[in-house]
Amino acid sequence: MKKRKYSAKFKAVDAFLIACMILPILFGIMLYVMFTPESSGIEISGARIYFTLNTPVQPLPITESQVNSWIVIISVFFLCLYLTHGLSATNPTKRQHIVEWALEQTKKLVSDNMGEFFDEFAPFVAAIMMLSAFSSLITLVGLYPPTSDLNVVGGWALLVFVLITYYKFKCGAVHYLKSFAEPVAFLTPLNVISEFATPVSMAFRHYGNILSGSVISVLVAASLQELSKIIFGKLPGFLGSIPFLQIGLPAVLSIYFDVFSGLLQAFIFAMLTMLYISSGFPEEDYKAKLLKKSAVKANT
């Protein structure tokens, strides 16, 4: 296999795509620096409101989490374009191997968990997983993670809920309403409640995990600052003002709370999406209905 030569145009497009990936993040950091008021201590706060749009119905605040999730969307979009740039069947590049591996893994995951009827769901599941993972990982550059805002994750959970209901409706409204009265009729209220608890629990699970991680990190960082002030505060000169204990320890916590927990929650969110959609869909009845329809068509 001969080594592939890149033309100048190919390299230029590559550089442009990489720049488009990094520029939104720099823009986000700039906005964050511009809008953060100077404060001495460490504080726990929700998403900041950057500005408010005056719409006729009611003022629409544009918050930090919203802007950051747009940044993630743009960055991931250009990352995908970069990875799929220069695909070829005979002479694949390094990134093509990465893309093919990821594609195979996603397809395998979806077909293992959802069955063959839902094979075309792989792009959707991969999109949700990527968006969630990168939204949580954006804390590594110091930005506010959109996933620790209930509104963002609630929106995703609502989308999943609509999909679940759509696939439950595939056999008609009567079948859908009847499914609430199973296995016994007097369980109907409980079934209705558990139907609405699905998106709520999904949203709370993801948001609570990320938020609790950031709250614990902030608390540990603040307490280490105070502790080092007590222990090393008596040192002469500027040595007394350096928080020695804050070096290193918060980074270890960050590896668990930001990287591991974020990726795990992304995986779990995608996994639960697949499980809920495929378990809500009455596959046997749908197949029976299709058979009946084709039989009627054959008769007439």
Partner: peptide, 27 residues
Amino acid sequence: TTTMLMGCAVAETTGLYALVIAILLIF
């Protein structure tokens, strides 16, 4: 391992409900 992680995440939900209530109560 995958099944265990899934189960752990689902079992964690009640704890997270309590966490959300605690956060609301504090902030």
